[in-house]
Every structure is written in C-alpha cells, then in structure tokens.
Design a protein around this nucleic acid. Structure first.
Lengths: 194, 194
DNA sequence: ATCTACCCCTAATCTATGTTAAGCCTGTTT
DNA sequence: AAACAGGCTTAACATAGATTAGGGGTAGAT
C-alpha cells in the first residue's frame, strides 16, 4: 500500500518524478483520515502542513468579530490547502481549516517540504505552476468581487465549480460568495422565475 | 549602462545570480519608458510580457459592460505585473495594463522567460516565492472583500499601502476597493468627523 | 491668461444586500 | 413516536453603498 500514490500521479500532471525522487518523497508524506467537522488548523496556531486532499472536501475560513464564518477556499480531490502566510512565516494563523465531508488527506511538514525543494529542484517548478494557477483563479475572484453583483457571482460559481456546487450546502456557498444564506436563497428563487 | 541592474538587485533579495546567469539574463530583458496613460496591454490582445516596474506606477484593470474600470492590481517600484492567465495560455486577455505615472519598466517575453527557467533553475525558486507572496496578499484581499465593510477595507488599504495611498488619486483607490468614488468620499469625511 | 479635463466633495434619492423572525423539511437522536 | 438540529425559504424592515446631479478647485494644454 503506497499511500502517496495519488500525489505522485498529481505531480505527473506537471512533471513526472523518477524513482529516486519518489524515494525521497515517500518517508516525508503522512496520511490522515478526517471526520466531518474535524479541524486541521485553528486560529492562533501555526499552520504546520501543506495538505493535499485525496478524497473528501475541506474548507478554509476566517471568523469575524461577530462570530460569522467567511469561506476563503474549498479544496476537494487533488487540491492543495494551507494558510501559506502562516506556514512560511511561522506566525499564528487567523484561519481555520476543517473537513466538510469525511476525508482522506496527505500532509507534508514545512521542514520536509523545504528539504524536498532542495533535493528535488523540479518541485520548485511544479509548485510554481500550481500556485500560479491558483493565483490566476484568485485574481478572477477578486475581479468578480469588486465588479459584479451577488447574482452574477453566484452564476459564475455554478459555472466554475459545477460539481462542488452540488456537493456543498448553500450556506457554505453563500459564505464563499460573501453574502448571507437568506440573500442567496432569494437570488436562487429569482433565477428560476426570471 | 546596464539596464537590468534593478532586476538583478531585486532577484538578490531572494537568491543572488552569478556572472554566468546574469549573462544569460541580459540579452533577454528589454527596457521601455511609458508616458502617463500609456498602455502595455489591452483587452482582446495576448499578454506577451512579464513586466517589472523600475520607476513609476502601473495598474491592471478590467472594464465591465457599462464601461466602468475595476482595478485589480497596482504595481509600483520593484513589483511585477502581467495577466498571467493570458501570458501562459496565449489566450486573449480581458484586462488592461496602463501607466498611472510616467514609468520605466523592464520586460521579458514569454519564450525568453521559459528559456531562462530552463537554463537558470533557481529562477523557478525565485518566481515561486514571488508568486506565493502575491498569492498570500491576494488571499487577504479576498477575505476582506467577503467579510468587511468598505470603511474597513479602506482603512486596511491605508495601512497596507501607505505610500501608494499618497500617490494615487482617490478615484483609483475606490476602483480598487470595489466602491464608487462618491462613496469613498463619504467614508473619508466620516473618518475625520468620527 | 484662459480653457479644459480631471479630481474631489455634497446631497437627494434609489437599490442591493443585511437583519430578524418565523415556518417547513428531512434526517438523526432519544 | 417524539424531540431535535441543520438546512432552506419567505417576508418585513433596516442599512450599506450606488446613482444622479451639481458645484468648486487645480494642473496641463493652448
């Protein structure tokens, strides 16, 4: 049972790793099962892991001073999730990461990842491309946020993440879009009528 | 007159380049002077350059169907700007990049950048770190956008970019925050009174 | 010196979105 | 079966932010 197989497959989409490289990777990847609602990062703690989702779905969110959650990111199969700011700076995070569904994840600790960057140069390339793609996605989201109505943002969400939209409760989607569940409900009913 | 000196200094903040590497870089960097309002990218065209600002300030923005501009990013001294989505995919951009002040920039074309990535592996590392930092910034901005009031977003902008806030007209800041200039004006007057 | 373009501000009115409160389902616990 | 919690909806009312219109200031262009 090679636990990191899905990860190796994932890297293959960018650049394939050879046998030696895989041997370096193996002992530095650990596997975890998460129950629904289980957290792997809480506000005030340092984000110690770069997390890869094999199965299930996680969310990262912040909580405002009124106690309301705001979803920054979802991560389903074959996606990465981490509070990069906290991870690299070792400063306490202001975010939470939590399983929305029972999930299977792979994690790499910071020192291990840094070691891997040094010993497998192509990982710099791979993660550069991964993060560039996430950057582009995020930039589109910012543009939407500053230029579009909630209605339009919801529409785009459905088009961009059709599978996720079916898996997630609407409360989670509303939190991601930056609106209340009540208002999302109104939007949805207007869409059917109009 | 070594035009790419500011760029070499910039890279030094991450990893210093040696003589050989600098010689590879030199012939692939071109310099341009821009007048106020001059554009280096327009909607419908492919983004061909990764642009580094030596002096001055540029903005990247989208235009909605009512003709209103929405500022996605500013780039002042020692910052990079490009529509990465268009740059890597060769698809037409939906964005504009324009000089807000008379500016001096350095540009690298896609094929040259790819060549440099291949011949100077540490550039993968350098740009990975650069983009990671921009990703973290952008993620904070998204969290603000979905969780904070315009008042709070303006306050954060002033704290995060104090120098930029002095250089930019308020219309540009409003466009970045996702509000109208009129509403920014109201916010500003309330701040003094309150 | 005088235009012109741009920028900033104010105020009245309008609209998108939030708040509060209530009711209905469905699935789960007791 | 009853009780309960979570998620979805609706509706009345409240507020953040947009729109429209107008006036004044300043710098660059002529």
């Amino acid at each position: 049972m090679v636990i990191e197989l899905p990860l190796i497959e994932h890297f293959k989409n960018y650049l394939p790793l050879n046998e030696e490289e895989i041997k370096l990777l193996e002992p530095r990847v650990s596997q975890r099962k998460l129950k629904r609602r289980q957290m792997i990062l809480q506000e005030g703690l340092v984000c110690r892991y770069y997390t890869f989702v094999v199965e299930g779905c996680l969310k990262m969110y912040g909580v405002d001073n009124k106690g309301v959650e705001h979803n920054l990111q979802f991560a389903a199969e074959n996606e990465w999730i981490a509070d990069l700011g906290s991870f690299h700076s070792d400063k306490p995070s202001k975010l939470f990461i939590e399983a929305i569904e029972p999930s299977l994840i792979l994690q790499i600790e910071k020192q291990d990842l840094y070691f891997l960057y040094r010993s497998i140069p192509k990982l710099d390339r791979i993660f550069k491309v991964i993060i560039e793609n996430k950057f582009i996605e995020l930039q589109n989201r910012v543009l939407q946020n500053i230029s579009s109505t909630a209605q339009e943002r919801y529409q785009s969400f459905l088009e961009l993440y059709p599978k996720l939209a079916l898996r997630l409760p609407n409360t989670q989607i509303a939190s991601y879009l930056g609106i209340t569940p009540e208002f999302l409900s109104k939007i949805r009913s207007e869409r059917k009528t109009g």
